[in-house]
Design a protein around this nucleic acid. Structure first.
Lengths: 341, 341
DNA sequence: TTGTAAGCGTTATCAG
DNA sequence: CTGATAACGCTTACAA
């Protein structure tokens, strides 16, 4: 009785050795063509490629990593705290950008959500030579508990770290400038009583967007006291807007530090029978799905989040491969004007 | 001149061999204690553990995988199409659940977003022995282009696959039953004119939730024609509600197939000066951040998404390790009653 | 119970 | 330009 390949369990993947045999060359040669070495006879190369096709051969990553002392993998760290607050699409979108870029390289993306309870596990995973670089997306506060690793491993952050901003690699948009421009538009369209719903002041985006609003308001010679704070959630935006309205002072425009809070502001404004934009103009920040879902469609700052993720990945790969890389890359934003202003 | 360890480049990670030397045992023994083999003298074990501590040793995954012919890694596949539609937190949340569970195992999670353009790359990665199992979360339609791999590799799906539901492993909630219960509550609270904003009919959740609504409506002897469809986005929910209202027939309750569409329905309803719940009761599905952000807080079906992710991971690991695993696990839902009904 | 030694699939060095 | 052959760091029979 002969062994036939039954459907019992996946048969082992073809190895480089098998390819070599089929092509009638040495393993070294196969390895060379697989890795695109220029110095290999083109006839042999053809033969090898044919064999690879025939066998549907894929190099074994583990063996490869072992031999090259390089994992060809990068890790995305998401602090557990951050991972719990995914009301906004920031995370998913940035991950998408990262994965999209990495798909064109031969780096693999692995994800860990780092529990603050036992960070050593994550730490030793990272330092155990299993990873060539690290991406940190902690939309949340300044908990960059990973900054210290940047001495041992290439790291790139999403957004300026709350601390250590002068040593770390990161990619962001110019939040202050973008907020300033958005606010200027409000001014130049004739609004006189500008308010803002600011984000948390322990997060760089919260800080910078408020600063941008202030700059624009002051340069217009207007008072800058109409500030209420939210935490980037829809509900907090609604509440902040209520507080603003409760002050009983004239308000004819409001800049919200993100679209979710802007959407919240909508409910508060419209709930009081006021009209957007006739009574109050609203501009947001992010240009996420809220911006178009809401009525009237929201004028907002386009935040290129996917690009941000791509750029993070690109920077990290450059770092890993010893190519020059920008320490801080700042992506451009644009104001997209819709019907709320 | 002697070499001192300067801060030039990360020093190589300690190896098992170094641990063995320090502890005065053979590598085999170290390997045994690392892998928790029972048959090792407890004194030696202590010594080894001490050495591991001292050196801050972490096993090299590549080497380990190579030796055991097992990657200790699972891959999460996100179809590119799916990844573009992240208005709702489903993706982030389920990933969180997966990562959370995996954190307690020694499986690594890697993510690929599979471009439909060149699926072979993904395919060969998966089949190249780099991964022990696959998780597929394609919230989107029935594009389970991966089902065919399930012969070669353990796979678990998020939600019942549109096709192949009888062979695949998957975890889901009983959408039909949940929708039915939610609708029954509307009936039992005295509502007579029930409408629904259904999801896309090429997605199992869309289909099942509509079916559940129908069942409840029919068993109450009420007409089941008040149906409009959306695509699970806020905007589509608003539009569907407009169409419903435009029919100019009495409506005193509506079941939306998810919370985002319910939120959209809110704007349409309140935009016409109708009150929730006095004029129209609303119930949603998912219990995501919208449910509490909205005014009045939304009565909705709690969808245990994090648990879903955890269960997916758990099932997959069981499958990989040859333990028994449920082919379909259905997680319980609960109706959380807030102020919209 | 512990150690020896033979792989695991690739890459890299070094002759030829 | 090609082919032996020695690593790479760990696991695992097989001996002792």
């Amino acid at each position: 009785m002969t062994m036939t390949q039954d459907a019992d369990g996946p048969r082992p993947a073809p190895t480089l050795e098998m390819v070599a045999a089929l092509a009638g060359v040495s393993r070294a040669t196969v390895s060379r063509v697989v890795n695109g070495s220029p110095k290999v006879d083109s006839e042999l190369a053809q033969a090898v490629r044919k064999a690879i096709q025939a066998l549907d051969y894929t190099p074994n990553r583990a063996a490869r990593s072992l031999a090259k002392r390089r994992a060809n993998a990068v890790t995305l760290i998401v602090p557990e705290a951050t991972s719990k607050v995914f009301a906004d699409p920031f995370f998913a979108t940035i991950v998408q950008g990262i994965a999209l870029h990495l798909a064109d390289t031969d780096y693999t993306l692995n994800m860990v959500i780092s529990s603050e309870s036992k960070p050593e596990k994550t730490r030793s995973f990272l330092l155990g030579g299993n990873v060539d670089g690290v991406l940190v997306v902690s939309h949340h506060s300044g908990d960059h508990s990973w900054t210290h690793l940047s001495g041992s491993l290439p790291m790139v952050f999403a957004g300026r770290p709350f601390v250590g901003g002068n040593e770390s690699y990161f990619v962001e948009v110019d939040n202050e400038e973008a907020a300033c421009n958005a606010t200027r538009r409000l001014v130049s369209s004739g609004r006189q009583h500008l308010a803002t719903i600011a984000g948390p002041q322990d997060m760089p985006p919260g800080i910078d967007r408020l600063a941008g609003w202030r700059t624009a308001v002051r340069e217009a010679g207007l008072p800058d006291g109409l500030v209420e704070f939210g935490d980037f959630t829809l509900a907090s935006g609604a509440q902040a807007m209520q507080r603003l309205l409760d002050r009983n002072v004239p308000i004819d425009a409001v800049f919200a530090a993100n679209d979710q809070m802007a959407a919240g502001a909508y409910t508060a404004i419209q709930g009081r029978g006021l009209r957007i934009p006739q009574d109050i103009a609203v501009v947001g920040f992010d240009d996420d799905s809220f911006a178009t879902s809401v009525t009237p469609p929201l004028t907002t700052v386009h935040h290129p989040i996917t690009e941000l993720g791509k750029k993070m990945a690109e920077t990290l790969v450059n770092l890993i491969e010893g190519r020059p890389a920008e320490r801080v890359t700042r992506l451009p934003t644009t104001l997209v004007v819709r019907d709320s202003t």
